[in-house]
Design a protein around this nucleic acid. Sequence first.
DNA 1: CCCGATATTGGATACGTTTTCATGCATCTC
DNA 2: GAGATGCATGAAAACGTATCCAATATCGGG
Lengths: 332, 332
Amino acid sequence: MNMRRTTIKDVAGAAGVGVATVSRVLSGGSASPETRERVLTVAAQLDYRPSALGRNLRQRRSGGIGLLLPDITDTFYGRVADGVLACARSAGEPVIVGATGDDPESEAELIGTLLEQGVDRVIAVPSGDGDSWAPTLRAGVVTVFAHRLAAGRDDIPAVVADDRAGVRTAVDYLTGLGHRRVAYLGGPGQEQRLSVFRQALGPLVDEELIVVARGSRDSAYAAAAGLFQHRPDLTAVLAGGNLLGEAAVLAARELDLRIPRDLSLIMFDDVPWAELCSPPLTVIAQPARDIGYRAAELVLRGGARRPRGVLLPTELIVRGSCAPKGTSRSPR
Amino acid sequence: MNMRRTTIKDVAGAAGVGVATVSRVLSGGSASPETRERVLTVAAQLDYRPSALGRNLRQRRSGGIGLLLPDITDTFYGRVADGVLACARSAGEPVIVGATGDDPESEAELIGTLLEQGVDRVIAVPSGDGDSWAPTLRAGVVTVFAHRLAAGRDDIPAVVADDRAGVRTAVDYLTGLGHRRVAYLGGPGQEQRLSVFRQALGPLVDEELIVVARGSRDSAYAAAAGLFQHRPDLTAVLAGGNLLGEAAVLAARELDLRIPRDLSLIMFDDVPWAELCSPPLTVIAQPARDIGYRAAELVLRGGARRPRGVLLPTELIVRGSCAPKGTSRSPR
DNA sequence: CCCGATATTGGATACGTTTTCATGCATCTC
DNA sequence: GAGATGCATGAAAACGTATCCAATATCGGG
């Protein structure tokens, strides 16, 4: 049972033409109508599927798209991935996914794997600074960043949500409610948000109220709990992601802080459970899926005339986790 | 700037040996110590990275692992994917991910893409019956199912949670609390759970209380809302997945059913927000990440001596969404 | 009717690797 | 010492495709 795969040669033989002609017909080259039809019918009969392996070697690239995310478990990145997959699929391109864990070393290693695979298009949520990305550029890989920018890499286009506006809206909303001690609970790679946060808060900013966690749930919880314990005077917190928001809710509950009575909370990223929470969480919604989809579009369009980047709008969705600074937090 | 990629030929030339020797050294074949060292140093100097393209063509397989999931947005599948990625990465294998949307046609199409790519190992959460999988088997692709089995495909090993025990535990727990009208809110591909549900409920089973939704959130919500409206007499519901559970909570809230006073709820799959919910949700935890990891192990081990399948334990985690059937649901 | 232009076609080559096979050399056995 | 055995090695042949290039057939204009 030596089931050899049917190759272009078989089709050529069966159709009585040369392999070059078959290749041309199948990749849309010029051919006479009758030849074209004959080749197509024969190919269909033999159930011929061109081998990507041969093609890839010949054109020294593997068509596929590389997608590097910090954590595929995070629904935000899940939605980004979904967008990429949707767009890639409509173009018939396979997507190779890697999880960096927000670790630059890990990222560099995964980039190496992708290069080895001959991937010539990469979408990534970059971790750390942009040093890892020299090899892809050198290899001529079309690269697009998603959700975050990398320090020192403004030569790579990026598709991001309008963090600036989002943070500003959130801060304005909170200060508008009378809050003066507003904390920021951030994650990796949120430098820009931080600077906007400081800027928006102006004289009210308190560096002690700004704390960044690493990517993990544990780290997020520790950061939130530490913040709440050390600074019982804070009345509002802006969480820079759904993991951080989750941690904030959990830590608040553990410390017997009532939301929103004792603590107002705004979370970046609208997730389904934000509505299930009690109280339902006020959020800054980000178009995660669109970010992925647009990034894929950009990367598929290739190097030709690609814009500097894309900025997608965010939206403040008011639910029930913020209250005016009326009842101050009760002393323990 | 014709930056041709450094190839095995370059290394061979620079080291003064034949390409065969270089290949052998790099893939762990036999070679004299001095030759080996020379080749390795030269390869390192030239920063040589073997091209997967050439290798793949030669061995007519692309090493990579195909992963087909219904919905990468669902955190359950996100965790499965995470397990697969972790295992694959430790083996240095790239993973090509596709989202089937629980649609057999879509699945078949994606399988086609994978075959075209020369993927020779596939992990999948199968949609519908197993007809789509004939091509992979015919092509000699090592296939492993995850989380679900496919009807008529007991020739493919599967890594699944112990649904049987999970459903039985849940049903026993609910009936033990005195519930008699227990509903099952299911999704696609849960035939086995359904049969166990009927079996565990015995004479109490009521076919009208069994409803299955399609994969989407909307469909899940519609199913839950419909169920609750049509059968106000039910007192407990088992949701067969986090999407279904979410829909149940939402629908219950919309219809002013209090959990657990009016309605007891158990949800399959423990997700972070189950604890954030109020009341926190009693769940049947499934080792999603392990499912992915084990499936990847199986598929990496290859066709050699692979077991019929793997059954991973579930666990009932009691939180606050179930109550004894004391206060009956108030009539509207 | 002939010539140049154009369209179609097939042979041949290259892509980068792994693997087979034959060769040369050193060591071992009787 | 002759033959057998083992190992290291390199030349060469695939793997399946796309594309260059030359050759042939077709056509229009003069």
